[in-house]
Design a protein around this nucleic acid. Structure first.
Lengths: 146, 146
DNA sequence: GTAGCTGCAAACGATTTGCAGTGTT
DNA sequence: AACACTGCAAATCGTTTGCAGCTAC
């Protein structure tokens, strides 16, 4: 997406603007599959053959530390990355190993309301999400929600 | 816990009742920390020095396949195990790396209700839970919820 | 007796690290 | 020029595997 937005986002964290960081962030922003580090690497090395996998890992880790992106543990043990940092839920699809975003303002309200009512002592809540797990009935087709 | 319950549970899945399986299942049932395979291994090898870590892994995997226990991916990348298979939610505490169970019938109702209203096409939901992430304000003290 | 289980050691895949060289500021 | 960042290869960590011997049924 917009290169200026990307460089600004990186610079805003006091990080140096390198080609590698731009490309990694760009790839993640464009992706909808919550890719692994290796998937990002495979994708970007086509246009960027010199990049190293270790750099992709380091870059992603740096972004996570600076809250530019999120790291998502997946049920099969590998980490996946998510450029979205705003509130949203995930659906994990076990037969295709996909992670889908799932947004609903109503759900957010319901959960916020619920959590507000509860008293959590000694706990500072930093995040919450409804994790839905399921399987596609037809693995080739998409999922629609209404 | 009750040895008879343990052996019956294992036998009910058509699995052979071995000392190792009993001990692993027992340790997991008694634990409240959602231990890793290695934590279970460390705990049981005190009374069972001959047991091997590979067996603990294999045993846990067998239990998961037979739906006796659950495998939980944790944000730091390692898998943790949970003897509870009934509906419950998890709180992940990032500064202590703890996973806490969190139960509330009201919450279950709210979520069930919400999901019932929604139409998920081409998706067969197998599980859902509210994942709360937070940090302990005082890491030594516990968390109370009301 | 036989299939299923265990223990060992070796293999594996994902991720991290140390370090010398390079690039950004 | 200084320091942060990159690339490489080696190291590490959690987990899995192959296989020979053992055990529950």
């Amino acid at each position: 997406m917009n290169l200026e937005i990307i460089t600004k986002a990186i610079a805003s964290k006091g990080l140096k603007i390198t080609h590698q960081r731009i490309v990694v962030y760009q790839a993640l922003l464009a992706s909808v599959i919550h890719p692994t580090a290796e998937q990002i690497y495979d994708q970007i090395k086509e246009s960027n053959p010199a990049i190293s996998l270790a750099t992709v890992y380091k870059t992603l880790e740096t972004f996570v530390e600076n809250r530019l992106i999120n790291k998502v543990p997946s049920p099969n043990g590998t980490m996946r990355y998510d450029a979205r940092t705003d509130y949203h839920n995930h659906i994990y699809i076990s037969n295709t190993n996909e992670i889908m975003d799932y947004d609903d303002i109503e759900l957010k309200e319901i959960l916020l309301n619920y959590l507000k009512k509860k008293q959590f002592e000694n706990l500072n809540i930093t995040d919450f999400k409804l994790q839905i797990k399921g399987e596609k009935i037809d693995p080739i087709k998409g999922i629609t929600i209404s």
